[in-house]
């Protein structure tokens, strides 16, 4: 099944009219997208670097990860909603854009990795040093989210 009809529908959907026709609609949503990126990226960096022993103490990171989970989820949700609106401004350009396709693939991988693997790997007792698996998961998580960001940047100029 192709997703092309969905993108064709979006190109004419009244829902996205403001995003298509107004410079400030797009600009404002981009700013929100970027603010959420800072929150999400900051959370991912501080928690994962902490697991590797860089920055915060290793013992602090499991609790920090738990306490920052709401911020992570809110910024992830904000990124998805603002991201859908940005795609709504130029759906067909995105559909055919290689960087957009790569980004969506990486994003799916990053989300899957975060919720299916990383969270489980991080569940070690607070006082035990993180296992090799938890450290590897921290590196993979940072690389995946970094790649999502770089692919996103590439949509704007490739």
């Amino acid at each position: 099944m192709s997703l092309l009809p969905l993108f064709h529908w979006a190109a004419h959907a009244p829902l996205f009219a403001l995003m298509r026709d107004s410079k400030w609609g797009f600009a404002t949503v981009e700013m929100v997208h970027l603010l959420a990126l800072a929150a999400l990226g900051g959370t991912v960096l501080v928690v994962n670097l902490g697991t590797l022993g860089i920055g915060l103490r290793r013992q602090s990171t499991p609790r920090l990860a738990r306490e920052l989970a709401p911020l992570f989820l809110v910024s992830l949700g904000t990124m998805v909603v603002s991201g859908v609106l940005l795609v709504g401004a130029e759906p067909l350009k995105c559909y055919y854009h290689p960087a957009f396709r790569v980004k969506m693939l990486l994003f799916a991988l990053a989300v899957f990795f975060t919720f299916a693997i990383h969270r489980r790997a991080g569940r070690t007792p607070s006082d035990a040093p993180p296992s090799k698996g938890a450290k590897a998961a921290a590196v993979v998580s940072m690389v995946l989210w970094l790649a999502v960001g770089l692919a996103g940047r590439a949509i704007g100029f490739l």
């Binding site: 990126l37 800072a38 929150a39 990226g41 900051g42 959370t43 501080v46 920055g55 915060l56 920090l64």
Partner: peptide
């Protein structure tokens, strides 16, 4: 993200 993330913590 690194700067603002650590400052925000």
């Amino acid at each position: 993200t690194l700067l603002a993330g650590t400052v925000a913590i």
